[in-house]
Design a protein around this nucleic acid. Sequence first.
DNA 1: TGCTATTTTGGGCATCTGCCCAAGAACAGG
DNA 2: CCTGTTCTTGGGCAGATGCCCAAAATAGCA
Lengths: 186, 186
Amino acid sequence: MSPTARGRQAREKLLTAAVQLVGEVGWNAVSTRLLAERAGVLPGVVHYHFPSLSALLREAAVGVLRDVLAGVRPALDRAATPEDGLAALFGLLDDHTGHDPASLVVVEAYLAATRDPELHRALRELVTEFRRDVAAWLAAHGHDRPEQTASVLAATVDGILLHRPLNPQLGTQDVLPVLRKLLAPG
Amino acid sequence: MSPTARGRQAREKLLTAAVQLVGEVGWNAVSTRLLAERAGVLPGVVHYHFPSLSALLREAAVGVLRDVLAGVRPALDRAATPEDGLAALFGLLDDHTGHDPASLVVVEAYLAATRDPELHRALRELVTEFRRDVAAWLAAHGHDRPEQTASVLAATVDGILLHRPLNPQLGTQDVLPVLRKLLAPG
DNA sequence: TGCTATTTTGGGCATCTGCCCAAGAACAGG
DNA sequence: CCTGTTCTTGGGCAGATGCCCAAAATAGCA
């Protein structure tokens, strides 16, 4: 009835392997056998722990996004001024060059969500909650238009991730002085 | 030696079918047979007109991006004030809900470029040229930091396209008043 | 109209795909 | 140690995949 330690380990290995592979070969190119090989298990194991390959990918992607957003939250709370908060938000973005698995899996998941209603629901929930937090933080620091600005900031972060491989001038230090203006009143 | 009218027509039908299908099923899920069926030709035709399926997708994606950017340019030139320019830029974005083939194929292409050096080169060239144009336009209107702002704007546009299916509050009318601040001096 | 280059046809090859399943191994609790 | 559950093993099925090719059909030009 309850899973054993070995079982949990295999599940975990499959999920982390999935994140790597989505980054390397793309969402739709992750196959049962490739995934199993990378995780160090036999192909049959995949469908024992997950009802389908897409369910596995869903869970992996949602996990990554949840972790990333969970990392941003405390950094936001720690920030005293709006500028510090912006710096914190985009400072965490420094870990993601646009070529790393986490960046890629998130963007891939956004696209996959276009064709997978369940994934869409899950991502929408996470993103909405994050937007709400950023908006509340903006409002708490006296910003006008907190909701719209939070929406734009969220979209801009992912847009930057998406563009980084194509544009070397999108480093955090290049981007921060521009986006600072979004915090100004008006 | 030189292609005939019928030949050109088949090529064209394949390219436009590719754009639709990339939007519907995703870059990696476009198969020779599916593509041929949608284009109204037999599967064998695909590899007569293109050396490989990926070459076909490359050409289709580059064509779409080139067309979109070509549509933005004159609208930018027509704009008298920076605010008009911004409105024009994001007004064209109104045609793209984030669910339409053009939006999706562009974002899909960005991701595919991560694993396809040739596609990467082509997209990089187009995006760089566009950024240069926007930067020149910003500079002509007395903006400081034209390059960085152009980079951020380009990334933001695609980020908004990516986020729209997950966030209904990213309509042009919601986004414009926020991004107006990027044009302010400071 | 004939002749040549271009294009379509329809089938085929080897390989990969997601998912399934019976049998056995490794485990936890008594 | 024995027992019932959890998990792995290794193989298999039907179908889809990219790419290829000889032959037939068509198009454009003399």
